[in-house]
Design a protein around this nucleic acid. Structure first.
Length: 743
DNA sequence: AAATAGCCGTA
DNA sequence: GTACGGCTATTTT
């Protein structure tokens, strides 16, 4: 087959390619990269290349592919070992590309996962103007289900390209890693990626138009990719000294907890029994081998020797001599091992012999034959256990989780500027929410015991952290889209929705102020405990509603150890709730009917959730689709609202309407976690910028960008400020935040 | 080395 | 019940 790509070797040829792009007005491009920094080591074996973009200064783009017309592509070697260009020349190439293509208003810049290309380009001083097209994000709007990668999509759209990915796999194996693949084969696949991306773009752009996704694509997806790319490159500063102190202090806690666990007669007994059992098993296994050798099932040249070897082994086992790694067994149980805990708690005659509480579930949510040892189970067992073992085990679980996931792991991901650079996935969920990884910034612990973790996230000198949080975003969306008069009224009055729901359920909404301000605040009030419980129940049901719950499921979430709620009771609570909010009840029915008729639902931003499961023969699959048709439009709209605000705020920052910092390094959004946005901000800009940002969040111009307006309910945000992520305090318009810096 | 299972952190 | 990512232990290749 004719070669469909060319490797560029001179700067003149680079300029030639740029002029071709200026003629066709299209430029599909793609970097191949090499992670040489600590991240490269951290990911060795896990990822073939750097999945997240530039993190460490040692990380390098090796080549770049360009395709301006289907049928042929060019490859420019950059920092590849075989590159004909010097480092100086590579920098010159970036300058030419930026001026000739990226900043050229007439050229559409096309990529697959543009954020990745954007981040690398930014590192080398490139700017982007004019239209961008991320084929991956287009794909995600048109089909939100995984996989979202280029190979899978091109295989589906152009089956004849199916096998090119297999060859990529072979190359990586042959050269032991993507980073080592020679220029020629690397160029071939880079060129292929660019050409495929261009081909896909042509098809998907048409589909975006015909399916009414163009506004969402241009005004949200393609703007998010800019904000998030800039945010990822900026990173989140970490107090390394403090983090290192946590490694020491938390390890101590873990050790002492483990000691407490081991200081238990039953455990010592169990450990001895465990070793005996293990040796018995080894002996049994070896005896079986001997029988197999005798019967000829296992073939050996020297049968007698094979047998005498094994007989020696058995006598060694009997003497308690375990030599090889496979034979050996730890002296104590591993409290982190679910298998061993099942043995200890339920199965072993030398263990606790607890009654099994419940079994783990398989993919189809059916109980397996393996007992569960999760937190819920342990809390049950804690009631029975008099030795305090379960209490310590729960503590150890918590400590280990914090230690490994949030202390040790981030320490290994710190860059030389002591920053963590997460990677957001705009295509990470089916509902439109973002996901975050390497590290995941969206599941940092927040409770009081875990607040030590958030404290390691700090601002640069002279700055504070500003967080803007949507309050009850999802329930506000529910009130708006269901047009439920009762719920709208509660939000209009500024009530706490959970307290108000509890009041309504008791028919005493007119006493809301007294219940909320006095009874719930005063622990000594005779009705305090009653209303705390009522509020908690209302909150559980409010959240359950968002998930499209069934009574059975609700019973589970309302139940506590020692206070079980039956399915009948739960069904009654649910019915009561629906009677309080008849508009919501109607909307549920409407969603389900629409889903049955169409197989998909849409949120107010126009984002689609396809749920063909509604037509499945399995009842369980249908029910899942029904729950999703409730949850997806709520969760998705709430997220889309936050992201819209994020994009508009970025606009304000760029146009100098919103000022966060004098330092250009800290002018970007710091992070986003589903319903909140974070920024670094200098105290002198706080009173000027916080109201502007809040206003954007509460009244984003959805009419202008997406053609709809929230008519009944307004979104509400609260701003918080702090010296670290763990100690944020509500924004006070009269506070002198300059004073906070000295603390 | 890669995949699966169980568990658990967030909104 | 919704939506995720990631760690450890364990099994499979």
């Amino acid at each position: 087959m004719k070669k469909r790509y060319k490797i560029i070797t001179t700067l003149e040829e680079v300029e030639e390619v740029i002029s071709y792009c200026q003629e066709t007005k299209y430029c599909s491009f793609d970097y191949e990269t090499r992670a040489d920094g600590p991240m490269g080591l951290a990911f060795a074996g896990k990822n073939k290349d750097n999945p997240t973009g530039p993190q460490f200064k040692e990380d390098k783009p090796t080549i770049m592919g360009i395709c301006f017309q289907v049928g042929f592509a060019y490859v420019i070697p950059l920092f590849h070992d075989e590159s004909p260009f010097s480092n100086r020349e590579v920098l010159k190439i970036f300058k030419l590309l930026s001026q000739g293509i990226f900043e050229n208003l007439d050229i559409v810049k096309i990529a697959y996962n543009f954020k990745f290309e954007y981040k690398w380009s930014m590192r080398y001083g490139c700017q982007f103007k004019g239209r961008l097209f991320d084929a991956m994000l287009a794909k995600h709007l048109l089909d939100e289900e995984r996989p979202n990668d280029l190979k899978s999509l091109s295989t589906r759209m152009f089956p004849e390209t199916a096998d090119y990915e297999d060859e990529v796999g072979k190359l990586v194996k042959e050269y032991k890693g993507w980073a080592n693949v020679p220029l020629e084969p690397l160029a071939k696949y880079c060129a292929m990626d660019c050409e495929l991306t261009l081909k896909i773009m042509v098809v998907l752009e048409q589909k975006l138009w015909s399916n009414n996704f163009y506004k969402l694509f241009r005004n949200l997806s393609m703007m998010q990719t800019r904000v998030l790319g800039e945010s990822e490159n900026m990173g989140f500063i970490i107090d390394k000294k403090y983090l290192e102190s946590l490694v020491v202090s938390q390890k101590k806690l873990i050790d002492s907890t483990e000691e407490a666990l081991n200081d238990n007669k039953k455990i010592r007994k169990f450990n001895r029994a465990r070793k005996t059992e293990h040796i018995e098993k080894l002996i049994e296994f070896t005896q079986l081998e001997i029988r197999k050798i005798r019967s000829g099932e296992l073939e050996y040249k020297d049968v007698n020797r094979a047998i005498s070897n094994r007989e020696d082994k058995i006598s060694r086992y009997i003497a308690g001599q375990l030599v090889t790694k496979k034979e050996q067994i730890d002296d104590t149980v591993n409290f982190n091992s679910p298998n061993q805990m099942v043995d200890l708690l339920f199965h072993s005659p030398k263990g606790f012999k607890f009654k099994v509480v419940k079994y783990t579930l398989d993919d189809r949510k059916q109980p397996t034959n393996r007992p569960s040892t999760n937190e819920e189970v342990l809390l049950e067992l804690e009631q029975i256990d008099k030795s305090g073992f379960i209490t310590h085990l729960l503590k150890l679980r918590e400590l280990n989780k914090l230690y490994s996931t949030y202390i040790v792991s981030p320490l290994g991901k710190l860059t030389d500027k002591n920053r963590l650079h997460t990677s957001y996935l705009i295509h990470g969920t089916t509902t439109g929410r973002l996901s975050s990884r390497n590290p995941n910034l969206q599941n940092i612990p927040r409770g009081t015991t875990s607040s030590i973790i958030k404290k390691m996230f700090i601002p640069p000198p002279g700055h504070l952290i500003l967080e803007v949080d949507y309050g009850q975003a999802e329930l506000r969306v529910v009130a708006e889209i269901s047009n439920d008069k009762a719920m709208i009224e509660l939000f209009e009055k500024g009530y706490n929705i959970h307290v108000a729901t509890a009041c309504k359920a008791d028919g005493v909404l007119d006493e809301y102020e007294f219940i909320n301000k006095t009874i719930l605040k005063d622990e000594n009030h005779p009705d305090h405990i009653y209303w705390v419980k009522r509020k908690k129940r209302a909150k559980t049901i409010n959240f359950g509603i968002i998930y499209g719950q069934t009574p059975k499921m609700l019973a589970g979430s309302l139940s506590e150890p020692g206070d079980l709620v039956t399915e009948d009771e739960a069904a009654q609570f649910r019915q009561e709730w629906l009677d309080l909010y008849p508009g919501v009840k109607k909307w549920f029915k409407k969603q389900e009917n629409f889903l049955r008729a169409n197989g998909w639902v849409k949120n107010i931003f126009g984002r689609k959730r396809r749920l063909p499961g509604i037509w499945d023969s399995q009842r369980g699959t249908q029910n899942k689709a029904i729950r999703d048709c409730i949850n997806a439009p709520i969760q998705g709209a709430s997220s889309d609202m936050t992201q819209t605000a994020s994009v508009v705020v970025r606009d304000g920052i760029i146009n100098n309407k919103i000022i966060l910092s004098d330092d250009p390094d800290f002018k970007n959004q710091l992070y986003t976690v589903h319903d909140s946005l974070g920024f670094y901000i200098m105290p002198k800009y706080i009173h000027q910028s916080v109201p502007l940002i809040s206003a954007i969040c509460e009244y984003p111009e959805t009419k202008k960008y997406f053609g709809f307006k929230m008519k009944k309910v307004r979104m509400k945000v609260s701003a918080e400020i702090g010296m670290n992520w763990g100690e944020l305090k509500g924004y006070n318009p009269n506070e002198d935040y300059n004073k906070w810096l000295n603390n």
